[in-house]
């Protein structure tokens, strides 16, 4: 469903020079699974997911989403994904209903079908309280629900969540994780990036631990635990990153 091969992305940056945000990562995500990208801030998760959503272009490497190339068939890729991140905000001057309807119409869903689907979704996600509230007046939880509804309204086969729980309280975050799990059970291919171990443990079928644009380890949680002889995911994460820092000669940051 998602195939990433030798993906690199580098920027020109005045201070850091040619900055390599992604240094040739490869992974595959399959339908009905949640693939977790686990890494600290600045690891390159957002860059990778922005490339998947066609908003950024790779420097080299190939990425196909649902059979479409993200560079040459970007429009097709966007039709088949739902993308939600901390950077995809809701419109201040639109109500929850208007916003979801707007994106539903952009995805080409006919108006009657869209109305039925939205009514069901607003009920399922308990969004009726933010139906007629303008984005500017919504609480963070409300905004997050609207973003989820906006990302899944066209029922895409691939869903990308980039640090979707950032800044949410426990209740809202938990509800969001449940929604993601439901979507997985419906057979969606989900890529979920986070730096919270608990979420990865709870949700991800496979994870890739990303640091400084490299995948340090990849596999199911069980495989990782066995391979690195560490049951605790947080310790495992810390251990891998420390080893990488030491190998690369960086000063200890953790």
């Amino acid at each position: 469903m998602i195939h990433v091969r030798d993906l690199t992305k580098s920027y020109r940056d005045l201070r850091r020079g040619q900055f390599v945000a992604l240094g040739g990562i490869s992974f595959d995500a399959r339908p009905g699974t949640v693939y977790g990208l686990l890494g600290p801030n600045g690891a390159g998760k957002t860059t990778a997911l922005r490339i998947l959503s066609t908003v950024l272009q790779p420097t080299s490497g190939t990425v196909t989403v649902n059979g479409y190339d993200v560079v040459t068939q970007a429009a097709q890729v966007r039709r088949h994904i739902g993308f939600m991140s901390a950077n995809t905000a809701v419109y201040d001057r639109m109500t929850g209903w208007e916003m979801v309807e707007y994106f539903g119409r952009l995805y080409g869903i006919p108006r009657p079908a869209l109305r039925d689907r939205m009514a069901a979704m607003f009920n399922r996600l308990k969004m009726n309280d933010c139906r007629d509230v303008l984005g500017a007046k919504m609480s963070t939880g409300m905004k997050q629900k609207v973003s989820v509804a906006r990302a899944v309204i066209h029922d895409p086969p691939v869903l990308i969540f980039d640090e979707a729980t950032a800044g949410l309280d426990v209740l809202v975050a938990r509800a969001l994780l449940n929604t993601v799990a439901e979507l997985r059970d419906q057979g969606k291919c989900i890529v979920f990036s986070t730096h919270i171990m608990r979420e990865a443990e709870k949700l991800c079928d496979r994870v890739a631990i990303v640091h400084r644009g490299q995948i340090l380890a990849e596999g199911t949680l069980e495989e990782l635990r066995e391979r690195h002889h560490q049951r605790d995911l947080e310790e495992l994460f810390f251990q891998l990153i420390s080893q990488h820092e030491a190998a690369c000669g960086f000063a200890a940051v953790l």
């Binding site: 066609t54 908003v55 995809t88 905000a89 809701v90 201040d92 952009l106 973003s147 906006r150």
Partner: peptide, 12 residues
């Protein structure tokens, strides 16, 4: 406001 990226990853 961060809404441009929302629109950019839509099929438009």
């Amino acid at each position: 406001r961060g809404t441009l990226e929302t629109l950019l990853c839509s099929p438009a």
